[in-house]
């Protein structure tokens, strides 16, 4: 057991047997007698470690094996092979013990009782984690302050806005002071202002309680603003495990030049310069600054004919989708 690590995963594997079903009535009838199965390696030999207090982003396209991994880490799914230790506990053997150490928030599934107030919900979760009445009250006060819930603490959850509800969901999952918080798409369906708001709360919580945060999200903003480290999975395998800084640095030597032209010009790809988009008057060019300068690109365009120009870094979103694609 390593005291420094919050999560240790080694050689994790999980396969699902998927039932194939043929279309239509005849297919259904056939399926009753003979079923064809297809094996899918949802998670195929994944290994990584997470330090205590770290905020880590665990991302990948749909069906990459993200949630399967999270579910194995939290004890929901049984792995086929491999070792898992979460706070030094094997989720397979000591599910209950593990439950006291972790908190989970699934953005798409609510854990709160909708007809009860946040306060009653917190009390319920307190009972689930065997907390003393006094301890619960104290904890609720802390969380109410941290997540600024006091305004609607006595409003039934079903009457809250989605943003308020997610705040309550996160607060409820922290009632027992978990060492690790698993956040599965916490900002899904929220508007940009609320998203930002939730991120601030998560950051604040990490700072205040030193909670290790394991985040999955499709929202690049979440990842960029919260996490220092990123693990990308695709097809059940880890394709990248690096710090956010490294990742950006690696791709920062590429610049995007978008220009609006007075007249049409014809350009072709050259060494270090790639045409991403060419719609006659509007051009989008990627420049690899290790080979060519941005100035070269502008010269190619003929500066006199440029109406407007914008030079930017490659957005993280594109970096990530590039990595997804290169994994194929």
């Amino acid at each position: 057991m390593n005291e420094e690590k919050a999560i240790r995963v080694k050689g994790l594997k999980k396969t699902f047997k998927i039932k194939l079903k043929e279309k239509g009535l005849i297919g259904s009838i056939k399926g009753m007698f003979k079923t064809k199965y297809k094996k899918i390696n949802a998670v195929n030999d994944i290994s990584f470690e997470v330090d205590k207090g770290e905020m880590i982003a665990f991302i990948g396209p749909n069906g990459a094996g993200k949630s399967t991994t999270i579910k194995m880490l939290t004890g929901i799914l049984y792995p086929d092979q491999g070792e898992i230790e979460v706070m030094g506990i094997d989720p397979r053997r000591k599910r209950k013990q593990l439950a006291y150490e972790i908190g989970t928030v699934f953005g798409q599934k609510e854990q709160l009782w909708m007809h009860l107030t946040p306060y009653d919900n917190f009390k319920f979760f307190g009972a689930i984690y065997d907390l003393d009445e006094r301890v619960v009250e104290k904890r609720i006060n802390e969380l109410v302050e941290l997540f600024e819930i006091s305004e609607f603490i006595n409003t039934p959850v079903r009457n809250l806005s989605l943003g308020q509800r997610i705040r309550c969901e996160i607060a409820a999952s922290l009632i027992h002071k978990p060492k690790i918080l698993f956040l599965d798409e916490p900002t899904i369906g929220l508007d940009p202002v609320v998203k930002e708001n939730i991120r601030t709360f998560i950051k604040r919580m990490n700072k205040e309680y030193k909670t290790t945060i394991f985040l999955t999200s499709h929202d690049v903003g979440d990842i960029e603003k919260l996490c220092k480290r990123i693990i990308i999975v695709n097809h059940g395998e880890i394709v990248l495990d690096d710090s956010m800084d490294n990742l950006k640095y690696h791709y920062l030597n590429k610049k995007i030049v978008e220009a609006k032209m007075k007249e049409k010009i014809n350009l072709d790809d050259e060494e270090g310069i790639t045409i991403l988009k060419d719609k006659g008057y509007n051009l989008k060019i990627e420049v690899d600054t290790t080979k060519r300068t941005v100035g070269d690109a502008i010269k190619l365009l003929d500066p006199d004919k440029i109406v407007d120009i914008n030079i930017s870094n490659v957005p993280l979103e594109n970096i990530i989708s590039d990595i997804y694609k290169s994994g194929n």
Partner: peptide
């Protein structure tokens, strides 16, 4: 419960 697949097991149509 050891076989529980947490809704990951969707039957695929061919």
């Amino acid at each position: 419960l050891k076989n529980y697949s947490s809704s990951n097991l969707m039957s695929a149509r061919i």
